[in-house]
Nucleic acid binder design. Structure first.
Lengths: 180, 180
DNA sequence: GTCTATATACAGATAGAC
DNA sequence: GTCTATCTGTATATAGAC
């Protein structure tokens, strides 16, 4: 746990990339092995089953998310704005990890969807002190979910009608006004 | 087209149910045939391929959505509220059709995700006259997306922390205040 | 129109050599 | 630790009988 072998991380990176780009269907053991530059047998030495591979990716995502959350708690100024801004995925390691796990969840992995729920709850806890009441909290969370959904998920590999920088700023201003 | 054979509709209904309940992975040709009470050969007489089956379901969803939209245009009072309320899926034929097509989109069908985009654009057009500006429009659309996402999709078969009736009413009031 | 039987392809997983 | 070869299950699709 403390010093994960390099090959393991390389496999997880490849799996994550395949999930982000091609979805759960494209992220097969075979494709992952090829993308990571190992053989199928080699992959199965590190991860004994597809379930084990998925679990490892989920755990890594949760770890990154927790670290990100700690940073957010340490710097509590403008939390709502930076939370919304962070919901529009830009390709950070956390973004990629979340998108990959979300694709797993869409494919039917319950461990993946459970972990996403848990992370969402942690965000909720962190935001609660910075909004007026529970209704305001729900509004912020839902806007974030909506951005995340449109930007990175389901409805398209084709990224929807993307907000301009100005439009996003205006949206954040409106949400902050409605919520504080 | 004008009088679709009964067997065809029965197959589409079965396919839709399997998608809603078990996702794209569970909705195989075999399972669909069984659920519809026909054989695989019988199914393939009506739909020559899985692609054809998916396309037919998508077309049916778009037709239902258009009809729903017309009803919304005809009754323009409280459009924003009823749009948001309609985003929390309750099992109407339109809800089921949308969820089924969304599962297809998650499974990688680009015709499915394209159709969802198109329907979302139609909703946007319908709502635009009833909100203050583009930013307000985005807020409404994103809250709707967020509700829809949490309620019916991806993050869980497990329906998330569900809003009570009172919480939903409060949310709608807040959105309407922010938007008009 | 609807059926059975079968062809083809690819997924995940195992066995055992090196 | 990493490889090749192979087994098993399952999904789509075809062929052709009734």
């Amino acid at each position: 746990m403390s010093r994960p072998p390099l090959a393991r991380e390389k496999v997880l990176d490849a799996f994550e990339s395949l999930l982000c780009d091609g979805g759960a269907r494209a992220a097969t053991m075979d494709a992952t092995a090829r993308a990571a530059g190992v053989s199928k047998g080699g992959l199965l030495y590190h991860f004994a089953s597809k379930d084990a591979l998925e679990s490892a990716l989920v755990e890594r995502m949760v770890a990154i998310a927790r670290a990100d959350l700690e940073a957010m708690r340490a710097e509590p100024a403008g939390v709502v704005a930076s939370f919304i801004r962070g919901s529009i995925m830009t390709g950070t390691p956390l973004d990629r990890a979340i998108v990959a796990v979300a694709k797993l969840a869409q494919g039917g992995s319950s461990i993946a969807s459970d972990s996403l729920h848990r992370v969402r709850d942690l965000w909720e806890e962190t935001l609660r002190p910075h909004v007026r009441d529970e209704t305001a909290l729900q509004l912020v969370m839902l806007v974030s979910d909506g951005l995340y959904f449109n930007n990175a998920l389901a409805i398209g590999t084709v990224p929807g009608p993307d907000l301009t920088r100005e439009a996003l700023d205006a949206l954040i201003a409106l949400v902050e006004a409605s919520v504080r």
